[in-house]
């Protein structure tokens, strides 16, 4: 054995290990930087919102003089956001589900029609929500609608549609094709296969997709900005304007009164809690519902 190359290798190895430690350090540093800044966001919202976080925030509507710092809450916006989001998600689901079933069960995957539909979904997916907001507004003025719960719901549904479709398609595509064939060979029609077997298989994915779309719809301010309007009351009809949480935060934050600004922080905390709830629920549900899945 000659020792010269051995020693060269040793020296190079020390250098390689130094490079490794350097990058590892860099990666760890950036990870902790990211974690710290993200946790900082949550911490600051919580800390800033503490002075204004009273029970009345979620149990009362804005009273008179609320925007000057007097009594009241944002129950109107909380309920309004939920109304908009539930309606929008139902609407989006009512379109996305049959569309995706058609796309995955009735079309050959490489046909031009399937390509066209997929392409359109990609296009829709890329469209910023402010553009949907603008389009929703154009529809509104065309049909002489006022800014209303209905208009807001339709616009948010458009935002959610591509998100929902893409997630659904992905989960459906993961269904093993053996399973589909096994069902066909039992004499089931495509429809029966799609509804009884495939849907049951994808149910966990469906739930996560719906919750994800809801989360997105809940926080989207740009889509409701021109279409949903704003009101200090609780909305009881589809044609009345409706308050939403993101806009409540936005408006209160622009107020010159510190008390009102503090309530913006509190509203942000409430919105965060709602989103947190959705994200936890989707984790929990997809785990629980996934038990019977064949993989």
């Amino acid at each position: 054995m000659n020792n010269e190359p051995e020693r060269g290798i040793q020296r190079k190895l020390r250098k390689r290990l130094r490079v490794e430690s350097f990058f590892k350090l860099l990666m760890a540093a950036s990870t902790w930087l990211v974690l710290a800044s993200l946790v900082l966001i949550l911490a600051i919202i919580l800390w800033k919102s503490l002075p204004a976080l009273k029970l009345s925030m979620i149990t009362r509507n804005p009273g008179s003089g609320y925007y000057l710092g007097r009594e009241g809450g944002i129950l109107n916006a909380i309920l309004g956001s939920l109304q908009v989001v539930f309606g929008a998600t139902l609407l989006a689901l009512a379109i996305a589900l049959p569309a995706v079933v058609f796309l995955t069960s009735y079309l050959r995957q490489k046909s031009w029609l399937a390509e066209l539909i997929r392409f359109s979904l990609d296009v829709l997916w890329g469209i910023p929500s402010i553009v949907y907001g603008a389009f929703g507004f154009l529809i509104m003025i065309t049909f002489h609608l006022r800014a209303s719960l209905l208009a807001g719901m339709i616009t948010v549904a458009m935002v959610e549609l591509p998100i929902l479709s893409r997630a659904l398609e992905e989960t459906i595509r993961l269904v093993p094709s053996d399973l589909k064939e096994a069902t066909y060979s039992l004499g089931a029609s495509r429809w029966q296969t799609a509804t009884r077997v495939v849907l049951r298989q994808v149910f966990p994915g469906l739930v996560t997709a719906v919750l994800m779309a809801m989360g997105r719809g809940l926080g989207d301010a740009a889509a409701v900005l021109f279409t949903a309007g704003y009101t200090d009351k609780i909305t009881t009809s589809l044609l009345q304007p409706v308050a939403t949480l993101p806009l409540a935060i936005f408006f209160q934050l622009n107020s010159p009164f510190p008390e009102v600004q503090q309530r913006a922080y509190a509203s942000a905390a409430i919105l965060t809690v709602l989103v947190l709830f959705i994200s936890l629920a989707s984790r929990r549900l997809s785990r629980r519902l996934g038990r019977h899945k064949i993989s």
Binding site: T31, L35, L38, V39, L40, I41, L42, I44, I45, K48, M212, G215, R216, L218, G219, D220, A221, L245, P246, I249, F250, L253, A264, Y265, A268, L271, T272, V275, L276, I278, S279, L280, R283
Partner: peptide
């Protein structure tokens, strides 16, 4: 990390904006 990332990926942009104004 995972749940924090999930939560923050879904956090509404108005909240990021608010944080931007504050910090």
């Amino acid at each position: 990390f995972q749940p924090i990332l999930d939560l923050l990926a879904g956090l509404p942009s108005v909240i990021y904006g608010m944080w931007g104004v504050l910090i």
